[in-house]
Computed example of a mutant assay.
Amino acid sequence: MKTTYRVPPSGLKNILTKKEPKGRTFFAPKKYVHKMGSAGNDRLVTLHLYSLLITGMKVYDLEKCAACIVADDCGVWWPEEQKQIMMDLKLEKVKPYSGRPV
């Protein structure tokens, strides 16, 4: 299952949730955020590839409605160590995607 979000100033806005077949690749456009998860009891393995070092990466914890900018050595995951958080960001909860185009 993949979900893609747009990031307006007010917070994350869900623009697409779609179940993908096994083995499918997924491209995340610039300025968008994506979330991946498995359906049911299936296991999920992800591989993220970047052509250049990403500096100033924003990561999100949707359950906590939290975001931050992480150190370059953190990657795309929520930091395990406080020293990897360069800046906390404020998010507002937004309504779930209604299925209408944005």
Rank of each mutant, 00 (worst) to 15 (best):
C68P: 09
D61F: 12
I69E: 15
V70G: 03
M87W: 01
Q82K: 15
L49S: 04
M87Q: 13
V59R: 14
L52A: 14
C65S: 10
Y50T: 04
D73G: 05
M86R: 15
Y50I: 03
C65Y: 01
G37Q: 09
W78K: 10
A71W: 01
M57H: 08
V59D: 13
R43Y: 12
T55W: 11
E80G: 15
C74M: 11
N41A: 00
I54P: 02
G75E: 08
K64T: 07
V70L: 13
V45P: 10
D88K: 14
A66L: 08
D61K: 15
H48Q: 02
S51K: 12
D42P: 13
D61N: 15
C74W: 04
L52S: 13
M86W: 02
A39F: 06
K35P: 06
G40Q: 01
D73R: 04
C68F: 09
G56A: 05
L44E: 04
E80R: 08
Y60P: 08
M36E: 01
Y60T: 08
N41I: 06
N41E: 02
C74H: 02
I54L: 04
Y60W: 04
G56Q: 10
R43E: 09
S51T: 10
E63D: 11
D42H: 01
M87A: 10
M57P: 00
L53C: 05
C68T: 14
